[in-house]
Amino acid sequence: MVKNRYIARINCLQPIPCNPCETSCPFGAIYIGEDITNRPILDLEKCKGCGICVAACPGIAITMAMITGDAKDFVSIPYEYLPLPLVGDTVVLVDTNGVDLGEGLVEKLNRPNKKDPTTLVYVSVDNTITDRAVGIKRKVASIVDVIEVVNRIEIVDPIICRCEEIRESEIIEGIKKGDRTVEAIKRRTRSGMGLCQGKTCNRLIAGIIARESGISVGEQAPSSKRPPVGVISIREMSEE
C-alpha cells in the first residue's frame, strides 16, 4: 500500500463518454484509452497526488487520500459550495450516500486548476473512516420536514392548457366525443390556442389521449403548425 502521500481515488461508476481525468493528468497515471466510455484505471506508482484530475472531473467523482499508518489519515475532497471551509475549521465527513462519518480538521485548501473555481479541501480524519470519506457535509444541510401524513387527498381536475385555462375534464370530454388528436381537442376546447401556442400543453394532451384511448403519443399525428410561431403583434406583422 502506498503510504504518506496523496493518491487519487476514482469513484467513476458508469460507462459515461468522458475522459478529462486521463487527459488532464500531467503524469500519465490515468488510463482510459480510445473508447472514452471505459472506466479509468489508475497507476498508483505514477500518481503524484497533485489533485489536477480531482478538479477536472465533471462528475466530481475523484477524491484523494493519504494513508499514514497512524491514527490520523488525510483526505482531499472537491468542494463547490459556499461558504468554503477555512483552514482550522472542523467539518463533518460523509460517505457516498451522505451519511455522517464524523468530524475532521481542515488542513489546507487548494485550487489545482487556477482558471477553474473547484476547490480541494484537505482534511485530517480518523483512520477508521478514510476509505469511506468522499464528501464534506454542506454547512446548511438539507433538512426534510415531513410535516404530516395525509389521507385527505382527492385528485382534483388540474389545468392542462395554462394559457386558455382548460382543465383535464374538458380534454377527457372531447376524447369521449371521439377526438383522437391534439388538433381535434384544440378545435373543441381552444387548448393550445393561447399565447404559448401549445408549447406547454400539447405534450400533456397527447398523453391524456394516449391514456384514455390507447393510441400512443407516437401514433398520434403532431399538431399542425402554421405561421406565426409564437406571439407577434399585428403591428409588427404589418410593418415592413
Binding site: R162, C163, G194, L195, C196, K199, T200, V231
Partner: peptide, 9 residues
C-alpha cells in the same frame, strides 16, 4: 414558469 419566453405565463 419557463423563464425563457416560451410559455407567456
Amino acid at each position: 414558469y419557463c423563464g425563457i419566453g416560451q410559455c407567456n405565463d
